[in-house]
């Protein structure tokens, strides 16, 4: 081949660790900032995601009231029992809603341009996770205004553990949803898949009923949402250990493993295209 006979003496520009770091940080921050900018542009859509769990919480809470036996709770009222479950619902819905944009972004070309930039795909996913987690935390804080009405004693809440559990659960779910959304071409298909896969996981997470013996208990142990519900429940009320399949430490461990595995899946999904 003779094509390179006329190649210029100038070679590929050199790189420095500082520049590489700046590009990774830039990618991470840009995608993080984008989700926050979108939140500012569409507050009503995101507010709807807060209101939905509140409506569910109030309807089911007052609907069931004290008619269900809930051993281990202080007063056995369903409004109190369901509060952590509604919180998990908020985290889940926000993650589903936010990652749906991955499909739109791939079709519109936004993510194609991001993939052509110098930053890595890990930073791209990381930026998206930070964006979704930030939006989730803002919504959770709004939701927690209702905590005193759910019998939560604010003084006894382990806030660090609570927000740690929400961050871990939101990151893991977003990474998993990102991996799924990356492979799909339509938001309808994504929505259908989420309804089939994630809603049953939420129902079986201990959000609606406490863990039972037998296969249900085993299913809960394999369900990352169950560990998210458990970690949130125990952070809000440390004495409710009979309502969770595992303790706080074990739940955190499982959430961490779930997040790491989901992140690897998301990374593999983006590397395939």
């Amino acid at each position: 081949m003779t094509q390179l006979e006329g190649v210029q003496p100038e070679v590929m520009p050199t790189t420095t660790p500082q520049r590489t770091l700046a590009e990774e940080w830039g990618m991470l921050c840009a995608l993080w900032r984008r989700d926050l900018l979108r939140l500012r542009k569409e507050p009503s859509r995101w507010l709807g995601l807060v209101l939905q769990p509140i409506v569910f919480w109030l309807m089911l809470g007052f609907g069931f009231g004290s008619s269900i036996s809930l051993p281990g709770t202080t007063d056995g009222h369903y409004l109190h029992f369901f509060f952590p479950g509604a919180l998990v619902m908020l985290v889940l819905f926000t993650s589903i809603f936010a990652t749906m944009s991955v499909i739109e972004d791939r079709q519109s070309g936004f993510l194609q341009a991001v993939l052509c930039a110098p930053g890595s795909r890990a930073s791209m996913i990381g930026g998206k996770l930070l964006g979704v987690v930030s939006v989730t935390l803002i919504q959770v804080m709004l939701f927690l205004i209702g905590a005193p009405f759910a019998g939560v004693e604010l003084a006894s809440v382990n806030w660090l553990s609570l927000f740690g559990a929400i961050v871990l659960l939101s990151s893991g779910l977003t990474a998993a949803n990102f991996a799924i959304a990356w492979r799909l071409n339509s938001t309808q298909a994504y929505h259908a898949l989420m309804s089939i896969a994630l809603l049953p996981l939420w129902v079986m997470s201990g959000a609606l009923f406490p863990p039972r013996a037998g296969w249900l208990h085993t299913a809960m142990l394999a369900n990352p949402l169950a560990h998210g519900t458990a970690a949130i429940r125990l952070s809000l009320a440390p004495e409710t250990t009979t309502l969770t399949p595992l303790g706080l430490g074990a739940s955190f461990l499982w959430l961490g493993v779930f997040g790491a595995v989901a992140f690897v899946f998301a990374l593999r999904a983006t590397r395939r295209s």
């Binding site: 984008r34 900018l37 979108r38 519109s108 070309g109």
Partner: peptide, 13 residues
Amino acid sequence: SVVFQRPSLDERL
């Protein structure tokens, strides 16, 4: 840099 068939812009921003 690449300009794709569909603009790589966030329409809401």
